[in-house]
Design a protein around this nucleic acid. Sequence first.
DNA 1: GAAGATTGAACGCTCAATCTTC
DNA 2: GAAGATTGAGCGTTCAATCTTC
Lengths: 163, 163
Amino acid sequence: MSDRPSIERCPYVVGDDGVARWTETHAAAWTGLLDAHRAITRALETELEAEHGLSLSSVEALGRLAGAEQRRLRLTALAGATGLSVSRTSRIVDFLEQRGLVERRPVADDARAVEVQLTAAGRAQATHFASVQKRFFDQLDAGELATLATVFGRLTAPAPAGS
Amino acid sequence: MSDRPSIERCPYVVGDDGVARWTETHAAAWTGLLDAHRAITRALETELEAEHGLSLSSVEALGRLAGAEQRRLRLTALAGATGLSVSRTSRIVDFLEQRGLVERRPVADDARAVEVQLTAAGRAQATHFASVQKRFFDQLDAGELATLATVFGRLTAPAPAGS
DNA sequence: GAAGATTGAACGCTCAATCTTC
DNA sequence: GAAGATTGAGCGTTCAATCTTC
């Protein structure tokens, strides 16, 4: 972990003063990832909060449940699917349960576990993904979409092999 | 804002049950944006916190200052550059000032404003962007980099024109 | 002792309110 | 009254601790 990164494929340079000088493209890609994420999530959050009183994470959770077998997932599995911590997921489920969008149900085999079941009302809410499409997919063509999918898949892959 | 989004370029469909069925690629691109951002920022944050006791946002701020004219920016400008709120930026500057990495300086023309000046120590810290490169750029080729830059530029553009 | 889940504490961030200067 | 900046309140999130069941 502490060895110097070997600069091979990256055409940016470090100036005499030691400050990294990135190319325009590098800067755009890096700040773009940050900015795009910020812009999209912020817009969605505002919209979802205003229209449905739901946070983006809550909607993500509903979406994962809607796509799951039998429309239910164990809490830990839901946390894994959304990428959130288990504790946060538990609180989101608290919230969604109060709204009647999900139900906590015991698991037959394992008394420790809880299954989060999407209700009919929750299923209806999960439908409203149009805002995602509007903000995101509408602005991409097929090739760009494919590149994003590929690149993100690689970036989120298990480990930076060979490091 | 409340009109139905027109589905034109997007080859995903909405099933009979009203739940959006995305293509594999769509799902990968969308969850990829979320997951990639989460994975990268989380890894960087852990690393920076452990090695330098700095949050990612703090490092971003240092980087913006390092790249700025005279290595200083007004607080509001710094907030705009980093995409953070002014209040958060003010607190980050508090923190960085305690560490001696930046200084608050009055502005000649305008007594309301404050200029945030990068110190020599801060400049040294700003150098350590290697982790960004390692986690991010090392895994991309030139074409992918260009696509990311293009796409992110469009996604963060002023407004989804015509909506 | 490990795994699933919940709760308390702390951090990062935004929003609203306030103060000062234009 | 608007703009630059700071402060207080509150939300979303993670980490550590706890409880129950395997």
